[in-house]
Deep mutational scan, measured.
Amino acid sequence: AKPPKTVTVKVEVTNADGETQTRTVTLTNLPKDLKPGDTVTLPETGQTARIVEITP
């Protein structure tokens, strides 16, 4: 079996106070056609994050 493909992405997350924070997260099994501006759900927090940058 192939190991899951991990991708490092820079995302913007809005916290409970309405502040936008930029975080770098490593995600696995992202859709192939994901692009900056799309939103993903962070598995560890369940927060919705907007992708700023994808590092191949």
Rank of each mutant, 00 (worst) to 15 (best):
R50F: 04
T20M: 11
T39I: 13
T20H: 07
K10P: 00
D38S: 05
I51R: 00
P4K: 07
E44S: 08
D33Q: 06
T20A: 07
P36W: 04
T8V: 12
R23L: 15
P36R: 05
K35S: 07
L42I: 10
Q21V: 15
E19S: 13
T48L: 13
T24E: 13
T14S: 07
V7H: 09
L27C: 12
T41K: 09
G46F: 02
T26E: 15
K5A: 14
K10R: 10
T20D: 03
T22L: 11
Q21A: 10
E53T: 08
A16V: 09
P56D: 13
D17L: 10
V25Q: 01
I54D: 02
V9C: 07
V25P: 00
T39E: 10
K35Y: 07
T8R: 11
E44N: 08
T55A: 15
D17H: 13
A49K: 00
T45V: 06
T14A: 06
G37P: 00
G46N: 07
V52F: 01
T14R: 10
L30Q: 12
T28E: 14
K10D: 02
A16E: 11
L27W: 02
T20S: 08
T45E: 04
T28N: 07
P43C: 09
G46V: 02
T41V: 15
P36I: 15
P31H: 13
A1Q: 13
T48S: 11
P4T: 08
L27R: 03
V9K: 00
E44D: 14
L34C: 07
I51Q: 00
T22N: 05
K10S: 06
E44I: 10
V7C: 08
I51W: 00
T20P: 06
G18L: 02
T55L: 15
K10W: 07
Q47F: 04
K2F: 14
L42E: 02
G18Y: 02
K2T: 15
A1E: 13
A16L: 09
E19V: 14
E12S: 09
E12A: 10
K2L: 15
T22F: 11
P4M: 04
P31W: 11
L30K: 02
T48M: 12
T41R: 10
K10Q: 06
G37E: 01
Q21H: 13
T24V: 13
A16F: 09
T24G: 01
N15E: 07
L42H: 03
E53P: 01
K5M: 15
E19L: 12
K32C: 12
G46C: 05
I54V: 09
T8K: 09
E44H: 11
Q21M: 12
P56I: 11
I51T: 01
L34D: 00
V11S: 00
A1M: 11
Q47T: 08
E53S: 12
V13Y: 14
T39V: 12
E53G: 07
T26L: 09
P36A: 08
R50M: 10
L30S: 11
V9T: 01
A1T: 14
V52R: 03
R50C: 04
G46T: 04
T6Q: 13
E44V: 09
R50E: 04
T6Y: 13
T45F: 06
L42P: 00
T45L: 07
T24Y: 08
R23N: 05
P3F: 09
E53F: 02
L34N: 01
K32D: 15
V25R: 01
K2W: 12
P43Q: 07
K2A: 15
V9P: 00
N29E: 15
D33L: 08
E53R: 05
V11T: 01
K2M: 15
T28L: 03
V7W: 07
K10A: 04
T28I: 12
T48N: 10
P4W: 00
A49D: 00
T39K: 09
E53M: 05
V25F: 01
R50H: 05
V52H: 02
T39Q: 11
V25A: 03
A49S: 02
P36G: 02
V9I: 13
L42F: 06
L34E: 00
V13P: 00
P3Y: 09
K32W: 03
T55Y: 14
D17K: 11
T48F: 04
I51L: 05
V13M: 09
R23I: 15
G18P: 01
I54N: 02
G37K: 01
E44T: 10
K2D: 13
V11H: 00
T8L: 10
L27G: 09
V40H: 01
R23Q: 10
V25W: 01
K35A: 09
V9F: 01
N15M: 12
T22G: 03
L30P: 15
D33T: 09
K10M: 10
Q21K: 11
V13N: 01
G18E: 02
V52L: 14
E19W: 05
L42S: 01
V11F: 06
Q47I: 08
V40E: 00
P3L: 10
T8Q: 12
Q21C: 11
L42W: 05
G18R: 02
L27I: 15
A49G: 09
A49P: 00
Q21L: 12
L42M: 06
K2V: 15
R50P: 01
G37N: 04
R23C: 09
V13H: 03
V11C: 04
T48D: 06
G37Y: 02
E53K: 05
K35Q: 11
E19T: 14
V25Y: 02
D17G: 07
P4Q: 11
T22Q: 09
T24A: 02
N15K: 06
P36S: 05
P4L: 04
T41P: 04
D33A: 08
E44M: 09
V11K: 00
E19P: 03
D17Y: 11
T48C: 08
E19H: 13
P43D: 07
N29V: 07
D33W: 13
V13C: 05
D33F: 08
L27E: 05
E44F: 04
V9L: 10
G18D: 02
T14N: 05
T6S: 11
Q21F: 08
A16T: 09
